[in-house]
Amino acid sequence: MATAPKKTTAARPTAKRLGVPKTYKLYIGGKFPRSESGRSYELLDAKDAFLANVSQASRKDARDAVQAARKAVSGWSKATAYNRGQVLYRIAEVLDGRRTQFIDELVAAGSTARAAEAEVDAAIATWVFHAGFADKYSQVIGSTNPVAAPYFNFSLPEPTGVVAVIAPQQAGFSLRGLAATLAPILVSGNSAVVVASELNPLSAISFAEVLATSDVPGGVVNVLTGFVDELAPGLAKHMDVNAIDLAGVEDDTLATALEVDAAENLKRVVRPRTFAARHTGDLAEITRFTELKTVWHPIGV
């Protein structure tokens, strides 16, 4: 049942009380640092009033984030599937608990109350869906293979490693798009470096607060705010990034250049144009960031 929009607007700070606005920072290695560059950019609301100063991450911040993600991936990928499922479910729980906050934040950034609610609820649903997939997807994707010789042979998916994500840019996707791209990456045990939506970055940083309080180990998800054309090339070229999701790259020329850069270490690339056709529940959303490993062993005495 949808909550009445009235209730959500009532939760907004009233003119009488002097609010305590949040400083929106980056999320790297489980901590909330400012950009090492000391830069920020001003974000305006729908009525062109000042909303927040957002950290403008540098290429150095992006490299730090990759380092943190690499450090975290070994532990996260070795966590049991049951454990990963519970952590993803915890994300949904904490997100649900802060539902009003996220709706308010989206409304402040220009969303209608109804659209904001739909977006937050879709994000929660996506996390729940993947929480329940963590200990099943490998049963769906994996197999035992009846080879024509006395060998036991099986195939199992493993996480690809460190995945860079250029989050969807369009309004209505700042939180939902984050869930849609991030959940399938995390479910198999990858770690991620996310470049948040340039114009709608606030939910991404608030979402990092959810991650920080949801038993997601530090470094498993790292969130950068800033400019795609500044941050994405460094991530596409980075030799310790294994895959890149270009969902939020809106400039075709940049997308092609990033794909060319990504070829240097044969990153798995998800092209931006496919984003409209992507759905939570498409197996490919998960498998594109997994590697199938096949094992042979003789059967004998």
């Binding site: 080879v147 195939s155 690809t160 044969l266 590697e291 490993k293 094992v295 042979w296 003789p298």
Partner: peptide
Amino acid sequence: KAGVVWANTFNRFDPTSPFGGFQESGYGR
């Protein structure tokens, strides 16, 4: 880090057995 691991055997192939690599050995099976 390998797409195919042979334990106590090596260089076995079969049509039912997926083959392909991690990292710079390529993608797809």
